[in-house]
């Protein structure tokens, strides 16, 4: 045990862990936003609501159908991703030729609808969701106690993030995607169905949000407000990282989670604003974000 500036190592590592957990969710959500932004050029305002729906689908699978966590981890992203595909196919795709701000406004409206519906049905208080039996308990690392479920969330989200990054930067499908981002008309001319690719990309981004929702369910409880609480912070993360950068959004997500955790140890009053302060500083120095390209 040791102390820095009067703060015990337990408190420090404890907050660092919470920071990493939050960072994992920031990273997964901003990654989904970045993927969607890259293809569709819109900021998906529904992202927070879809993250919330992802968690609720897991909760409903357990309480209505008796289907547990591991299946929910697969089924919820698929179900929510399908909802995303429908949104893109029937709504967003009709706005493609208009100013991209309309896309933002549409997704904002959808976020209100989803949040309102779930609040109407489930109220504003959280519903408990137990972590799976395999992941209960924890490990004593000597300097701190690490709950198994949290270790799982951090490692699993890292795998998902890096997997997504690899798929986009180093596979054939990913290269199509990147090409279509640069020049959709040309890629279409090569016989690739860009329109379908856009739809599926949106579905995939939404799936990522739902996956984050399922991971979050045992930690934060399932709550209709969970999406709107986190999404604004994630927007700030996206601005700091630079919009559309895949690796950038992953790194910034984790880093800002940790920064937030550390602030909670050393200067708790600023912990909820620190990300926005960092954003203001980054904007002054690099208006396109840390990893962003100029537009």
């Amino acid at each position: 045990m040791f102390e820095i500036l009067g703060i015990t190592s337990q408190a420090l590592f404890g907050q660092l862990l919470i920071g990493l957990i939050n960072g994992a969710f920031y990273a997964m959500l901003s990654l989904g936003l970045a993927v969607i932004f890259g293809m569709l050029n819109i900021i998906n305002f529904t992202h927070g609501a879809l993250y919330m729906i992802g968690a609720f689908v897991a909760w409903m699978l357990l309480n209505y159908l008796g289907i547990g966590y591991w299946w929910a981890l697969v089924l919820s992203p698929i179900a929510t991703g399908t909802l995303g595909v429908l949104i893109e196919r029937f709504m967003l795709s009709r706005l493609r030729d208009l100013d991209h701000l309309y896309g933002l406004l549409l997704t904002f409206g959808l976020a209100l609808i989803f949040e309102g519906l779930f609040r109407q049905k489930f109220g504003s208080s959280g519903l408990p969701y137990r972590p799976p039996a395999e992941l209960t308990g924890g490990t004593n690392l000597g300097f701190m106690f690490l709950p198994n479920y949290r270790a799982w969330v951090i490692s699993f989200s890292l795998v998902v993030c890096l997997g997504t990054w690899y798929a986009i930067e180093h596979t054939r499908l990913g290269s199509y995607l990147r090409a279509a981002t640069e020049n959709p008309a040309l890629v279409q001319a090569f016989g690739i169905n860009v329109s379908r690719m856009i739809t599926l990309t949106y579905g995939f981004g939404v799936g990522l949000a739902a996956l984050a929702g399922v991971l979050a369910a045992p930690i934060y409880q399932v709550n209709p407000l969970m999406g709107s609480n986190i999404i604004i912070v994630v927007f700030a993360v996206v601005v700091i990282g630079g919009m559309g950068s895949i690796l950038g959004s992953i790194i910034t997500g984790f880093a800002l989670g940790v920064a937030e955790g550390l602030t909670k140890v050393f200067y708790p009053e600023a912990s909820s604003t620190v990300i926005f302060v960092i954003m203001a500083i980054v904007l002054l120095i690099r208006p396109t974000g840390l990893f962003g390209r100029s537009t």
Partner: peptide, 21 residues
């Protein structure tokens, strides 16, 4: 009507953007 206000607001948003710009 509580949270239905949110739903109605959202629906107006969607309608305006889709058909009533």
């Amino acid at each position: 009507l509580g949270s239905w206000v949110l739903v109605v607001q959202g629906a107006i948003f969607v309608l305006c953007v889709m058909t009533f710009r």
